[in-house]
Design a protein around this nucleic acid. Sequence first.
RNA 1: GGGCCUAUAGCUCAGUUUGGUUAGAGCGCUUCCCUGAUAAGGAAGAGGUCGGUGGUUCAAGUCCACCUAGGCCCA
Length: 1047
Amino acid sequence: MYRAVPAQVDLPALEHEVLRMWDEEDVFAASVAQSQGRPTWVFYEGPPTANGAPGTHHVEARVFKDVFPRYRTMKGYFVPRQAGWDCHGLPVELAVEKELGFSGKGDIEAYGVAEFNARCRASVLRHVDEFEAMTRRMGYWVDLDRAYWTMDKDYVQSVWWSLKQIFDKGLLVQDHRVAPYCPRCGTGLSDHELAQGYETVVDPSVYVRFPVDPASVLAQEFPGLALLVWTTTPWTLVSNTAVAVKPDAEYAIVRTADDEALVVAAELVEPLFDGTATVVRTLAGANLERLGYVRPFDYVEIPDAHYVILADYVTTDDGTGLVHQAPAFGADDLVSCRSYGLPVINPIRPDGHFLDDVAVVGGMFFKKADETLVDDLQQRGLLFRHQAYEHAYPHCWRCHTPLMYYAQPSWYIRTTAIKDQLLEQNEQTNWFPETIKWGRYGDWLTNNVDWALSRNRYWGTPLPIWRCDADHLVAVGSLEELSERAGSDVTALDPHRPYVDDVTFSCPDCGETMTRVPEVIDGWYDSGAMPFAALGYPRSNADTFATQYPADFICEAIDQTRGWFYTLMAVGTLVFDQSSYRNVVCLGHILDEDGRKMSKHLGNILAPIPLMDEHGADALRWFMLASGSPWQARRVGHSAIADVVRKTLLTYWNTVSFQSLYARTAGWQPADGAPPPAERPVIDRWVLSEANRLALEVDRSLAAFDTQRAGRLLSAFVDDLSNWYVRRSRRRFWDGDPSALATLHESLRIVTLCLAPFTPFITERVWQDLFRPTDPQAPVSVHLASWPEPVTELLDEELGGQMALVRRLVELGRAARATSGVRTRQPLGRALVSAAGWGALPADLRQQVADEINVASVESLSEDAAALVDVTVKANFRSLGARFGKQTPLVAAAIAAAPGISLVSELRSTGAAAVTVAEIGDVSLGDDDVVITETPREGWAVATDGGESLALDLHIDEELRLAGVARELVRTLQEGRKAAGLDVTDRIEVRWSSDDHDVIAALAAHGAMIATEVLALRLEQGQAAEGAFEPASDLPVRLALTRASGR
RNA sequence: GGGCCUAUAGCUCAGUUUGGUUAGAGCGCUUCCCUGAUAAGGAAGAGGUCGGUGGUUCAAGUCCACCUAGGCCCA
């Protein structure tokens, strides 16, 4: 027997009950356990950074990470799901610095690295708790108990092992390069970190005169000649070392309106001077080589410098075509200046401030110096032009300090050496949406630069490289190996700073003492290493790893293209020559209701747990999966979520509640059996066909990672089931018809299983209420059940098409009712239909149309009342266009001009008809070439759509009028029942009194029908009994009803 | 400056791969209907130059080019 399912439901409360049930029965563990030994479908959880509270965007990704593993598990796969937490890195350090009120590395050193890192560890633990709560609440099934933590000792050692592999391949190297550098954090940033931190700022855009050496030939010829140099970083002018020009570009010496001589690229004369300057000489860039000039500032010593050099990277697209060179602060500058043997002078400290002994700007923060320097140039008459320049400038993605490009030694992974391999791996990867593969991600790989791996920080995986004074290097792959080298057991050591820094050993080459290099590594490497590090491979779990690499599925938001998607592929390819994943779903961002990014600053953050406690986790999940395109940025708000709840989840619930109510009332249960489907009414066969097709199509959609299509199919089916099947079949449910009950039971079983991965809570509850109590074989949870196997014999495409026609005709009937003003409650005698396929419709389906629009009979228009009919024939362009191309309009015009009735009768009798078309002659037309619309003329209400028409005979005779009155009486009594608070199964007794002829006659003619309809045991003329309820009526009648004793 | 994505009803979005002549749904609004699931359901109406311009085609929301706006990414 089903459990009683109330019509009203509190989804969040239901979900908390289900969560309790999952806990008590340990359902997730059971699901994993029961699928052990099946083919593995590998999913990797991208570890969220355990820093700060989780947001709604975390829910989005986690919904998608949940639905596919659930689906695959139902399809018979073993889907291991290990949770993971990204523990290391700058974000955590910054949070702790803030907590402690620190303002830089000096504070940390003073505080003590050991204590600082202990704080970082504690901070991670704190935030993981919040993530776990959110994960549980939303029903994301992932193994939290065996989660990997990137700070775990085993994890760190796996990372070490992989770095040793890379080191041994010669791909991990130290180099002195100009790299983006955060002066506040005191460390360089990798390219993918850089990508996350561009901010729009206004910088000075200055054009500066660099006077040409007066002794030079050119200056002799053009006294006062100056190079015009453009820069947006005036602070680097202090370090000016050279000016670069493009060797093969044409340069011009111009004379300005103020009679000044300047050198700029010829192409830029017009944009720069707007016709106010005249070109007095042109020469190739190569001819300017080694031309000396006077530098703008002489605050620091830069020997043997300050002349024009040649560099191919210079462009003449913007600026002046002469590029100021400060080799300590520009990657290109460094390369170009090195080739001339120019010195690299850096007057800025690692904390971003000028050295104290620099004149004028000493001790100043680099960006702050801009204004002072520009003023100074102005006063000395060197400033040619000064504008505000708005552009995107890289900032530290965490602390928002403007970055410097800064020359410093760093460790790099030479990913450029494996670029082709990465591109090849990308070829073999399926991206959803596909455009990412060739677009955003492909571009990124194509422009790959070496991975700046090291960080001059504290809380991270220590770079496992030891070095001696002779610069010999050793990479260490584990604590065991370290113990061996150190000659003492350090396997119990925390492999973090500062402990690991204290371990030294003697150099195998020269015997000198080796100490660890001071750097830690980019936290993104940690997460990229998770496929093996999460298992502690190769120190443990080697066989598991063999079956769980690479992943079949990963999923994150689009910002991970340069983040995890990249590092995962790169580390996999570096270490195993193979990318770590095959299918990747790439989600769009979540926006607020107004389309703005969610941020603390705007105060438009939707905290996930309160959101789920208001609408339900299922609601939020369904919204994420089915509403709008997952790849696109989407707006989330309360009303949007409430909407999907009402539309789909509550409709589903109501159908379940309906089934429970009538099955219980009839004392029916699934085991009681029902006629085989083939012997059930056609509407049952239809809905079973649709349900089985649903299982097939949702399966297909999920296999293609298309939750949106799956969601559409599910919503449409729920709507069909509730608003067509149940509504059309209600009467049979009241009667406890086993066919109907069995059909709805089976349909609900299929849709419940298909919905289970999407909305695991409500489906679990339905499983517990309808399916588990009625089937001893049923698993204890819907999530232990298999995907519904479609019964192909039940699929009936023709029936699907026929039912669609029925529903279109019903809509036409309703439209005709509406235009005629004759309410549906008033029975009518007949309706006439003109539609292709009507003739082939089974009688049952024709009856559905008649019932739904309340007419006694529905007949074919073409067989009847031919004289009453207007026929119009229109061209079907789709078929004619293919045949006639350019001449299609001529044929269409000929069809429109032809006499409709004869054309149609010719078509109907012979299957073909001919029209005469100017310029072509006789053209033969088939059924497909025309759209025939037939409409009756007088006394009918007609509705037409897409070539199909339905006409209502509006003539109402005495009999129909009385039937209408009877229906009205039924309705009044039903409303009375409801108003009196009766149960739908209560029996009643009715007394009536009236002087009205129609009422009396209707009761006489239809009394038995009325009594049956309203469950009246007695229907008698007479005065209201004591305590009777008297419903208000629009008819001239007094009615009184009382509850009858007994059934 | 370059790349990618997006632009369809008041709002949220389908439809564009495969071109077909009245462009759909939901929400909201108005009117009506139905009601033994009822804080449901149905019908009708109002509301659209399918971002703009040009092109290809018998035919363009759909294909092509350019432009505009917004978003994301890169420099």
